[in-house]
C-alpha cells in the first residue's frame, strides 16, 4: 500500500516535471501577450532533434547537448518571434491560431524531410541508465534526474520571476500590460526575452523526452493537448500556476493509469474538466 503510494507519487512527479518544463513557456506567452502559440510543441520537437544531432553527429555528451539545445533553440526562436509573431500581437486569436498551426505543419514536414518519419533513440550516459537506491527502494535513475532538472529549473525560474527586476516587470506586464507600458516598461522586449526562454525550455523538455517518449516529427502536435490542459488548469501567465497544473495533472494521470486498468486514461481529462468547472481561470488565475 505504502509502496503503491510511493510509486504513484514518484512517477507522477517525474511526469509532472516534464509537463512543467515544456508548458511553462506556453503559459507565460499566453499570460503576457494573450498569444495562442500552438507552435510551442514544434519548438519542443526541434529541441529533441537538436539533441539527437549534437549527440550522434558531433559526439557531444548528453548534458552538454541539452544546454546547447536550450541556448540555440531559444536564440533561434527570437528570429521567429521578431519576423512572424510580432506582426500578430494586435491581431485576433483566430489569426494567431491559424499562423501557429501553419508553422507547426511546416515544421512537421520539414523535419520529416530531414530525419524521416521513424522514431529515434539516443544513448544516455550510463549513470542515468540504471537504478538509484534511495531510502531502501530503487528508482530509475533517469526519472530521478528528470525530477532534479525540474526542481533546479523551478528554483531558477522562481529566482528570475520573484527576485529580479526583470521578473517584476514581467509580472507587472502580465497583470496589466497597458499600465506597465505607461510606466515605461518595454513590454515588447520583455516578451521577446520570455518567448526565447520559454521556447528554450520547451526545447529542453523535448530533449529530455526522447528517452521517455521517443521522437518523431509529430511530437510537435501529439502532446499539444496535454500542454494546453496544464496551462488552462494552472492559469495562464503564472509560474506557480503552471507548476500546480503540471503536478495535479501529472499525478492524476499517473494515479488513474495505475488504479483503473479499464479507463485510466480518462483521469487526466476528468480532473481537468472538474477543476475548470470550479475554477474557470485555473488554479492560480485571476477571475
Amino acid at each position: 500500500m505504502v509502496n503503491t503510494l510511493v510509486s504513484i507519487l514518484f512517477d507522477g512527479l517525474a511526469w509532472a516535471m516534464f509537463l512543467f518544463i515544456v508548458s511553462v513557456g506556453l503559459s507565460v506567452t499566453m499570460g503576457l501577450m494573450g498569444f495562442v502559440n500552438l507552435a510551442h510543441g514544434a519548438f519542443a520537437m526541434a529541441g529533441g532533434y537538436l539533441v539527437l544531432t549534437t549527440m550522434s553527429a558531433w559526439g557531444v555528451p548528453f548534458l552538454g547537448a541539452l544546454v546547447i539545445t536550450f541556448v540555440v533553440v531559444g536564440a533561434a526562436s527570437v528570429l521567429f518571434e521578431r519576423v512572424l509573431y510580432a506582426r500578430l500581437y494586435g491581431a485576433g486569436e483566430l489569426d494567431q491560431v491559424l499562423m501557429t498551426i501553419g508553422l507547426t505543419f511546416m515544421a512537421i514536414a520539414t523535419y520529416t524531410y530531414f530525419y524521416g518519419p521513424l522514431t529515434h533513440a539516443i544513448r544516455i550516459p550510463d549513470y542515468l541508465a540504471g537504478q538509484l537506491n534511495l531510502g531502501g527502494r530503487s528508482f530509475p535513475a533517469y526519472r530521478v534526474f528528470l525530477i532534479g532538472v525540474g526542481a533546479a529549473l523551478i528554483a531558477a525560474l522562481w529566482y528570475g520571476f520573484d527576485r529580479t527586476s526583470l521578473g517584476a516587470k514581467i509580472r507587472a506586464s502580465v497583470d496589466n500590460r497597458r499600465m506597465a507600458q505607461s510606466v515605461g516598461i518595454d513590454v515588447d522586449l520583455l516578451f521577446t526575452i520570455t518567448f526565447a526562454v520559454g521556447s528554450g525550455l520547451a526545447a529542453l523538455g523535448g530533449g529530455l523526452a526522447i528517452q521517455l517518449l521517443g521522437l518523431t516529427p509529430n511530437f510537435a502536435i501529439i502532446y499539444l493537448v496535454f500542454f494546453l490542459l496544464v496551462v488552462a488548469v494552472g492559469g495562464s501567465g503564472s509560474l506557480w500556476g503552471t507548476l500546480a497544473g503540471a503536478l495535479v495533472l501529472g499525478m492524476a494521470d499517473t494515479a488513474g493509469k495505475y488504479l483503473f486498468s479499464d479507463a485510466g486514461t480518462f483521469a487526466i481529462y476528468a480532473v481537468a474538466v472538474l477543476i475548470l468547472l470550479l475554477k474557470p481561470a485555473g488554479l492560480y488565475g485571476r477571475e
Binding site: L84, M99, T104, F105, A109
Partner: peptide
Amino acid sequence: QFGIGLLLI
C-alpha cells in the same frame, strides 16, 4: 503539410 502550412501563414 508544408504547402498547407505555407498557405495558412
